[in-house]
Deep mutational scan, measured.
Amino acid sequence: LKKVVALYDYMPMNANDLQLRKGDEYFILEESNLPWWRARDKNGQEGYIPSNYVTEAE
């Protein structure tokens, strides 16, 4: 899975979204639905995130 790091905080707009915290790492599960990607956080929560809020992890 592709790993990304959040560049900004993101508060979910609806139940399908995943909250982002700046500096945290996330795994990308699906990239087909631009600009929204399906992601999983370190706690196993899954949801959609804005792809322009993250960058690929080193």
Rank of each mutant, 00 (worst) to 15 (best):
G44V: 01
R38M: 10
D17I: 08
W36V: 09
E25V: 15
I49F: 06
E30Y: 10
E58Q: 13
G47M: 01
E56A: 14
W37A: 06
P35N: 15
K3N: 05
G44E: 04
G44H: 05
Q45E: 12
I49Y: 01
G47H: 01
Q19C: 09
T55L: 09
G23T: 02
M13V: 15
F27I: 12
N43E: 12
F27S: 06
A57C: 11
Y53C: 09
A15M: 11
G44M: 05
T55H: 09
K2E: 03
W37S: 07
D41H: 03
W36D: 04
E58D: 13
A15L: 11
M11Y: 14
T55W: 09
Y48E: 05
N52D: 13
G23A: 03
L18C: 02
G47C: 02
L18M: 07
I28R: 02
I28W: 00
D41A: 07
E58P: 14
E31V: 11
S51I: 08
A57R: 11
Q45C: 12
V5T: 10
L20E: 00
A6R: 00
E30D: 14
N16Q: 12
I28H: 00
K3D: 01
G44K: 04
L7W: 03
Q19W: 09
N52F: 11
E46N: 04
Y48R: 09
G23R: 02
Y8A: 09
V5Y: 11
L1T: 07
Y26M: 03
A6Y: 01
P35R: 15
A6L: 01
Y10V: 04
A6K: 00
N33T: 14
D41T: 05
G44S: 04
Y53V: 04
D17A: 11
M13F: 09
W37M: 10
G44Q: 05
V54M: 04
E46V: 09
Q45K: 15
N16G: 15
G23C: 06
Y48F: 13
V5L: 09
E30M: 07
E46W: 06
Y10E: 01
Q19L: 09
R38E: 05
D41G: 05
P12F: 02
E56G: 11
W36H: 08
A57F: 13
L34I: 08
P35S: 15
F27P: 00
E31H: 11
R40M: 13
Y10R: 08
R21L: 10
R21S: 09
W36Y: 15
M13W: 06
N52W: 15
K22Q: 11
E58Y: 14
N33Q: 11
E25Y: 15
S51T: 06
P50R: 07
N43F: 13
Q19S: 09
E31Y: 12
P50Y: 09
D17R: 09
L29V: 10
